[in-house]
Amino acid sequence: MAGSTAADPICTDEPLLRLESLKVYFRAARGLVRAVDGVSVALERGRTLGIVGESGSGKSVLARSVLRLLPERSTIQTGGRILFDGQDLCRLSESELRRIRGRRIAMVFQDPMTSLNPVIPIGRQIAQVLKYHLGMAPKAASARALDLLASVGVPSPRQRLEEFPHQLSGGMRQRVMIALALACDPELLIADEPTTALDVTVQAQILDLLHRQQNERGMTLILISHDLGVVAKLADRIAVMYAGRIVEQASAEALFGDMRMPYTAALFRSIPKLANPSHTRLEAIDGRPPDLAGELRGCRFAPRCRFAGDRCRDEEPPLGRKPPDHEYACWHPMHLTARGGNA
């Protein structure tokens, strides 16, 4: 479904977004934090990439680094390239980037309250974006703001135009955030945990909205979540992050059908499944992710991995590949060594 619609835009060979060995570090009191440590991923036009991982694995830093929305003073990008439609965003000046941010690439955050202006009515906030990026006249911008609010399913949009963010429910605010992000018809939308703060019922509404908007606009989507269930629903391709790295990535079908990296499998198994009877013992992952400011040797998952051997602790595992495009970083990938079921 996602991506398989007839209305797919022309698939050029060049992906819309390509990250090459991206490294984003922070200077912090506790040392150098390697939040994103060598991430490579490519995303074709009109497709959806899901990124999952435990909190602190670097998902948000990765997302924000694409738009350079990180604190300038403490952030160091030590390597890699961010190629968007062929140009390296890292080489752009701030003013060049401003023409892309919000216009060609837009972002939706977990907590809409922090990214909406609390003292400006929401209608005016949307109109401002339209004026800034598209140079729309005030009248046209207001009319477009109204259309946008209606299209994201805000009831009685005309009245809502005049309301302030705090007057809206969490789900409504997230809809407004999405309307704002969609205002300039971006080619790429990055949604960082867009439903984490919401109820299941509202979450389902927002995921449906994202999906429909993507199909209508032929937009490319990056959906970030710690919930494999949310990602499974929309993503064509899924990348699993652990301690600043992508440890496995594949098409959604390939990933769920044949998990290679023990961390992916462990993450999946630790989720309570509705299909299981009550009181089914959960397979928890003991311990917690490593401190990204400390020394990281070998496989970063080794201290928690049931299958870790000496080599895992000393040497970084190479990237394994299963055609056509399933990648995993593990010395002892599952399945190949017949370690029992994957799911």
Partner: peptide
């Protein structure tokens, strides 16, 4: 029933249904 249908499932086979089960707000 509506509440149960809103749950996203970590199973790609259940992927087809993004229709929200409950419309509107509380």
């Amino acid at each position: 029933k509506a509440l149960l249908s809103s749950i996203p499932s970590p199973d790609p086979k259940a992927k087809g249904s993004t229709d929200p089960a409950i419309e509107g707000d509380l």
